[in-house]
């Protein structure tokens, strides 16, 4: 799409594009009428440049708006410091495979990832179970196309600080009541939705009534860190992140340990918008799916971290949708 086309097609751009020069001209006429002195010319210079700046913004955003590059993102579920480094290699891989520019867009929250997907600012996303369900509800026609090998049987770990004296058990640890408890992000599946579901199922009460204090750490590695320092006594975290941090030596097992493993549920998946074939040609969706399934390089898989990808479909996530409805996280 050329710059001109996109101005014409996008009403908001059109509005910005036309209104700025008009205001500018009106202002100029006003000034000519009133003559000028030093003060005015100072003010005029200032205002002229602001208008010009606005004009440039609207123009640059218009020109750059043509969606040729495939944008993708991932929910910020763990260590956020190296996001760009982690996912730039994935973008490079997809770009080579698909023969189009692919760019990774970092986001700060689960909801920002969903919003970007909904706004077509990203067309492909590595979502969690809950965020994927939410995104697909908001964007009709979008599809789950691939999931990690581990995602068909995902789990959450309940972890506790050593000072609580809680021990690992096979059954749900009912003695976690009256402790302080932290979830991960508010919109996380393994850090919020499923732990809350099992808490409600086993204790017949919402978390706020079960625990002395309920917090949301923000992401899984943060949950581990907070329980490890004792800021919270108990927490629920993603088992893949736990294993990864354990391997990296970031967990001091004399301070924090797993006390319960939840039953399995479906989690992360790649979701793609339904309208990508219109932009990149017939069969594009299948090509993306194929490219994802063919990721074998351990360096790439480490970014997620998964051992490989398999096909997925929207139906695989029906249990997540039902659980979210039951708890009241989705209307």
């Amino acid at each position: 799409m050329t710059a001109f086309e996109s101005i014409v097609r996008n009403p908001l751009n059109r509005l910005m594009f036309l209104s700025t020069p008009i205001t500018f001209i009106i202002y100029q006429l006003q000034l000519i009428k009133n003559g000028s002195n030093r003060m005015q010319s100072k003010l005029r210079r200032f205002i002229q440049s602001s208008f010009l700046a606005l004009l440039v913004t609207s123009f640059s955003s218009t020109v750059l708006s043509a969606p040729k590059t495939l944008m993708f993102s991932a929910i910020p579920d763990q260590d956020q410091t190296q996001l760009i480094k982690r996912f730039a290699i994935v973008a490079d891989y997809l770009s080579t495979k698909l023969g189009i520019p692919v760019k990774y867009i970092p986001v700060k929250s689960y909801s920002a990832a969903i919003t970007a997907f909904r706004n077509n600012q990203i067309q492909l996303a590595w979502f969690g179970g809950l965020s994927g369900v939410r995104a697909r509800l908001l964007v009709p026609g979008s599809e789950a196309i691939a999931q990690g090998l581990e995602d068909t049987e995902f789990r959450s770990y309940f972890i506790a600080h050593h000072s609580t004296g809680l021990q690992a058990s096979k059954d749900f640890p009912k003695n976690i009541s009256d402790k302080t408890f932290t979830f991960g992000s508010k919109g996380s599946t393994s850090g919020r939705l499923m732990p809350e579901f099992f808490i409600r199922e086993n204790l017949q009460k919402p978390p706020n009534d079960v625990f002395k204090r309920v917090g949301f750490s923000g992401n899984h590695s943060r949950t581990i860190a907070l329980v490890q320092t004792g800021a919270y006594q108990v927490g629920a975290t993603n088992y893949k992140v736990w294993e990864k941090e354990m391997k990296a030596g970031k967990i001091d097992s004399s301070k924090v340990s797993v006390i319960w493993k939840t039953p399995a549920y479906p989690d992360y998946q790649w979701t793609i918008r339904g309208d990508v074939d219109q932009f990149w040609g017939e069969g594009f969706k299948t090509r993306v799916q194929q490219a994802l399934l063919e990721i074998k390089d351990p360096a790439l898989l480490k970014s997620f971290p998964r051992s490989g990808f398999i096909k997925a479909s929207n139906n695989d996530y029906q249990p997540i949708l039902e659980t979210a409805r039951k708890i009241g996280l989705i209307d």
Binding site: N10, L12, F46, S65, A66, R118
Partner: peptide, 27 residues
């Protein structure tokens, strides 16, 4: 500096511009 302000104003839009676009449907 007052003299530098127009320069800043001219450069700034290019700094903050990114390649996402606004969809009127969303608004």
């Amino acid at each position: 500096r007052p003299k530098l302000l127009p320069v800043y104003l001219l450069i700034s839009p290019f700094i903050i511009a990114n390649d996402s676009h606004i969809s009127f449907d969303n608004v």
